[in-house]
Structure formats: structure tokens, C-alpha cells
Amino acid sequence: MGWEVRHGGRRYLYRNRRVKGKPVKEYLGADDRFGTGVLLAHQLERLQKHAAKLRGLSREAGAAFRDRIDGLLDATEATNADIRTLADGTLYALGYHKHNRGEWRMRRELMHLKNAIEKLKENTAEPKPLVRYEAPASDTEAVELFARARAGDAEAKKRVGALLRERQWVDSFGNLGRQATRQLIRRASGGDPVWEAGIIEKVSAMRAELLGTTPTVLEELLVRRVINGWIATHTLELELTVRPPVNAKECEYLDRALGRAQKRFAEAVRELARVRRLRAPAILAQLNVATTQTVVNHAPDARVSDPRSILGLSTR
């Protein structure tokens, strides 16, 4: 606010203010003989004092508001800093670290130990069956009996063995070696039914050739080992030839696995040859005949009733 002298010494009253950020000089009135200009100046002065007081109060209120907000944020930051320090220390003590000052990660050694502990927990839990046998859906009696036996029915458990004999499923359900070979063939074929059928036919032909016409139980076991070793060895050889790993470490790992499989396969072949050189299958065949005759004649002979006695093993 101010008086300005214009035109022959006459005073004029102006007010300075801003409009849209630009300074503007606003004319209020002239100083006349009636005192209108003086009255306007007095009123304008009072108005400006009130406006200044309002601005001062507004600044104080704004400052108090900002102080209150800043105080809240500072207190939160201080509290969180303590908590963060405690949490970071705990995580560091547990073996974690910040990867590139970013996310938390467990150290590799502790991760291996954690995985080992989880595996041990899984192994200590109640084991699940490796193979789950199911009766044909059309055989309602077998389906119901299997369900009752698995539910804990004692009578059903006793009846299962008899039913397997009646249905002639003993060799199919109880032959663990056959199931092991089937699982190996399934893994080797990669889920391709045509390839699986081809491997089954090849394995059947090899098995028949190795067993001969009158195989014994011991020969069955040893030939099964040879067949399983043949499947594993040639599957890994094919994997290394057709689909070799790009990573050098994985390629080396596959090569070592192939070496182990070849070693087991060769050991199984040597074991079969050694047993046949010992004529153990022929002795077992004689034992089978002798045992059958003993049972038919109902005259047990202590010298031949236990096969282990003929093989020179302890009978205790």
C-alpha cells in the first residue's frame, strides 16, 4: 500500500497485489478534501494487518503440522531401525546373507544341510509302497477285497493270499525283480509306448536266451541282474550320444554315471558266469528233484531236506 503524488501534487492511493503470480498495482482512491483517501488508507492498513496476522498463523499451523508428521516419521524410522538391526542380526546368525545388497538368501552350505534334513524327515515318515497293485475293474470281488485289506480288515488280509493263488496273480504281484525291470523299461522308454514295447520284446528274447530250457531260481535272479544292468547301461549310452548335456559338469556327471552302470553290468555278467562254472544251478536242480521226492513219499530225509546242508552252509 502506498500514496503516490501525481498531477500537481495531488496524492493517489494504490494497493500492490499479485494476480496469477504477476504483480499488479490496483488504484483505490484520491486524497480529497472530504478525507475519503485517508479513510480508505486507514481501512486498507487494518485489512493488511489482519491478512499478515492470518498468514503468520497459517505459517505457524503449517509448521506445527509438519513437525507433528515429521516427528511421527522420525519415531517410526527409529523404531524400525532397531527392529531391522535385530532382524538382520538374527538372519545373519541363521546363515542368511543379502545377495548384492538386495534380497535375503540362505548360504549354499546351509541350504544343502536344510535339504538333507528335509530328506531325512521324509525318510523317517511312514514309507509308501514302491508299486501299488490294483485289481482289474471288472473283478469286483478282488477290488473290494483289496480295498478292505488296505483299510485294515484282518480277515481281508488273510484272504488276499488265497485270492492271488486262485487268480494266478502270485508271479505278477509278488515278483519284485519283474517289477524292477518294468520300472527300468518305463524310464528308459520315456513314456513312448512303441519304444517301450520294443524294449520289452528285446528283453524277453535276451532273458529266454540267457536262461535256457531248465533255469533254476538262482539263475532267474542272476539273469534278472544282467538284464537290468543292460537296460541301464544302454539307456545312459543313448542319453550321452543323442542328448549330451551342454554344461561340462553335467556331461562329466553323466559319463561317471555311465561308468558305474557299465561296472555293475559287467559284475552281473561275471557273477552269472562264475555261478554256472560252479555248477550251482545243476546242484539246485538236483535239490529240487530230491525235495519233491521227499514230499511225495512223506519220508523226510535230514540229509536232503535242507538245501543249505548240501551247499555246505550253516543250517542254524
Rank of each mutant, 00 (worst) to 15 (best):
106 M>D: 00
297 N>H: 10
142 A>F: 11
92 Y>E: 13
224 R>S: 15
49 K>Y: 06
75 A>V: 06
304 V>Y: 04
306 D>A: 04
28 L>D: 02
115 N>F: 01
136 P>R: 04
65 F>R: 14
81 A>E: 11
144 E>T: 11
302 A>Q: 08
44 L>A: 15
85 T>C: 02
101 R>G: 12
294 T>Q: 15
21 G>A: 03
37 G>Y: 08
189 S>I: 07
228 N>L: 04
202 K>D: 12
64 A>S: 09
48 Q>D: 11
36 T>R: 08
221 L>N: 06
274 R>P: 00
6 R>L: 07
174 G>E: 12
253 Y>V: 12
130 L>G: 07
211 L>N: 05
95 G>T: 08
16 N>P: 00
151 A>Q: 11
175 N>G: 02
74 D>F: 06
76 T>L: 10
166 E>K: 15
147 A>W: 01
130 L>M: 05
251 C>Y: 14
1 M>R: 06
126 E>A: 10
5 V>N: 05
164 L>D: 02
259 G>K: 11
252 E>D: 13
87 A>Y: 07
20 K>Y: 02
205 A>H: 08
227 I>A: 02
94 L>I: 01
158 K>M: 07
55 R>P: 01
103 E>F: 10
3 W>N: 05
68 R>W: 01
140 T>G: 06
244 P>E: 03
81 A>V: 01
189 S>E: 04
85 T>K: 11
307 P>R: 02
172 S>Q: 09
47 L>H: 11
59 R>N: 06
1 M>I: 03
46 R>N: 07
96 Y>F: 15
192 D>N: 14
79 T>D: 15
183 Q>G: 04
314 S>E: 08
216 T>A: 04
205 A>K: 13
59 R>K: 09
146 F>L: 15
81 A>P: 00
109 E>L: 00
265 F>S: 06
151 A>Y: 00
293 Q>K: 08
10 R>L: 08
16 N>I: 01
175 N>H: 11
31 D>A: 12
172 S>M: 08
141 E>M: 09
12 Y>V: 12
99 H>W: 09
269 V>Y: 01
107 R>Y: 00
154 A>D: 15
202 K>M: 11
101 R>E: 14
309 S>P: 00
203 V>F: 01
274 R>I: 02
36 T>G: 01
174 G>L: 13
233 T>Y: 08
85 T>L: 07
19 V>P: 00
92 Y>G: 03
46 R>Q: 13
57 L>H: 12
251 C>S: 09
65 F>N: 10
237 E>I: 00
116 A>F: 05
106 M>A: 03
176 L>M: 05
302 A>M: 08
198 G>D: 13
200 I>H: 07
67 D>E: 14
